[in-house]
Design a binder for these strands. Structure first.
Lengths: 332, 332
DNA sequence: ATAGTTTGCGTAAACGTTTTCACTTACAAT
DNA sequence: ATTGTAAGTGAAAACGTTTACGCAAACTAT
């Protein structure tokens, strides 16, 4: 309605009969100003609808108090719910630092061109720092860009070539817990379903299972529901004796269980299944999925703390590792 | 590594022996400049690492090409996956307009103080416009703030008092489809589980069921998994004859089904269940959930288009309605 | 009373761009 | 040759803040 142009500090100061410096000081906590005039100015500001122009502020302060989050987005057909929780953790923590969150989902398999686009975003630097979630093919190029442009960054997850500023999940330990649980509950024929890149999960699983570790069957499985079903089918053909399975992620596990139920294989009686990530929906499945929980919210929280430290100290900081829990439900 | 301060347009222009105006023109597509010098400048810019300061740009252009998304976040205990898909739709569309997305999850039940904080964000206006997702108690206060501050906005979902700039879901029609399906498949005793605010869903459901509409049982249910279970328990006590149920959202439906299975009530044999929203995980449940699908990605897309129109035309535009589909799976 | 310190405020110079305006030069039309 | 038009460039004025510096007034300590 009030289509009046926004009032500037100069016009506002003139109306009040003070200098623009005084007005500026009324809204900052730096310069010297009497409490009395500050209150008066703040009151008048409300009356006249004066608000400092944010762009001018950003120019002088050389910052817009914004942090960018770059994360892999599979596609809208199969969004990664994983990220929602991390994002909420990040946001809640950023708010404490009075920072704003800007998001850049980027393709899992970005083309050279697309990658340039994202690098540009980074180097144009409309933010104080970035948080990159590992997982996409191009992730490390983004981090390189940040490094070369001297832009503060933090990384969530393991990324090859990056040893600092990272929040890592202790996947190995999580898988260890799963292996140990299967052994302790008397399972005899373990299998692991997941991508071949996830060495640490395999390793931990083997360690946990202990003595019989060499018996573990590895089944290739991507990271989709469909892959889980395929893994079950394959295992039934090649190793029908398998009686417990660790899946590299929850969706995979759900797909696996669904295929098993379809074949009238009982879970957990015939095969016990444990997933990875403990995404929220997992607990609602029937049977409710046991899973290695990643504490995603904490992950986001930790990433922000690391980034803030990097910004403050102007040098890289040590990576941190977030522990995993084994959440036991009906599927194991 | 190169901790050298970033070079400014003035320094850069001096090195090249041209004026700053010319440099500026080389990177914009407005003023007149010969193609030859433009290319030279762009080449040199790469060499010297010159990039226009984004804050100064924003100051002169009075925009930072950023759009803010405000959405209700239940809490990190129960994130709303709903939003992920909308966000991806919004982001993908924004990218086409070369805009950047900023996110502000805000509490479902914000205190007066928190609300002020969000209003401040809005009025300080570090963006070109905002998209508000309806659903939280304070949502309409945020829209009011935008209106009073003359800030372009678009709304996703129905919000009381807001008739323009909105993307609406045709919930009524979706519920109609569910009601009709139940009638057509010979169900006799329908129930609706959901909050009392969602009048349109109830209404559509009744219409769809037709003649016997007055027989429909309404069961109060919030929007959590737990509420779904409670609804089942209550219905069993008060109306054990119910043989088909429309739930106001998927999580509710999943909770309902889980409770039914626990009591050894077969779904869909004894009770057919249809959910609402068709969130991605629903298809993975056992039994896979039938649901009224909201086309969330399109929703986001549409919201952006509306907002861009509002920004361009500098006046409100008509609301649009996104249709629903009934996706039939195993639970009905 | 006097010198020294503190407090409150104003002037003016940044901050790093974009853009208007005016000025050359080049070229086309007479 | 002369005028008119267009193209390319530069000087300087915005854009709306923050802040360094300077100065007067008001305290404090001698």
């Amino acid at each position: 309605m009030t289509n009046r142009k926004k009032i500037t500090i100069k016009e506002f100061a003139e109306k009040l009969g003070v200098s623009i410096a005084t007005v500026s000081r009324a809204f900052s906590d730096k310069g010297r100003i009497s409490e009395k005039t500050r209150q008066e100015i703040i009151a008048k500001a409300r009356e006249y609808g004066y608000r400092a122009n944010i762009h001018a502020r950003n120019l002088t302060s050389r910052s817009n108090n914004t942090i960018a989050l770059l994360f892999p987005a599979i596609s809208h057909e199969e969004p990664d719910y994983f990220i929602t929780e991390i994002m909420l953790g990040i946001n809640e923590t950023l708010t404490k630092y009075r920072k704003i969150l800007q998001v850049h989902p980027f393709p899992l398999d970005a083309s050279e061109q697309e990658l340039e686009l994202y690098k540009d975003y980074i180097l144009n630097g409309s933010f104080e720092g970035i948080i990159v979630v590992a997982g996409a093919r191009g992730s490390n190029h983004l981090v390189s860009a940040a490094q070369s442009g001297n832009i503060p960054y933090a990384v969530i997850g393991h990324m090859s070539g990056v040893n600092e500023n990272s929040v890592l999940f202790d996947n190995e330990y999580g898988a260890f817990l799963a292996g140990k649980y299967f052994k302790d509950t008397g399972r005899q024929h373990p299998a692991y379903v997941g991508g071949h890149l996830d060495k640490r999960k395999k390793l931990g699983f083997q360690e946990g299972f202990g003595a019989n570790a060499n018996k573990i069957i590895f089944a290739e499985g991507g990271n989709s529901f469909r892959h889980g079903g395929m893994a079950l089918e394959n295992l039934q053909k090649t190793h029908p004796e398998v009686d417990c399975v660790l899946c590299a992620n929850d969706v995979l596990a759900i797909g696996f269980i669904k295929a098993a139920l379809t074949r009238n294989i009982k879970v957990p009686r015939d095969i016990a299944v444990i997933g990875f990530d403990d995404i929220k929906p997992s607990r609602y499945y029937t049977p409710a999925l046991s899973s290695v929980s990643l504490k995603l919210f904490e992950l986001g929280e930790c990433a922000v703390k690391i980034l803030m430290q990097v910004i403050k100290e102007e040098k890289p900081v040590n990576s941190e590792t977030i522990e995993c829990d084994l959440i036991l439900r009906q599927s194991s």
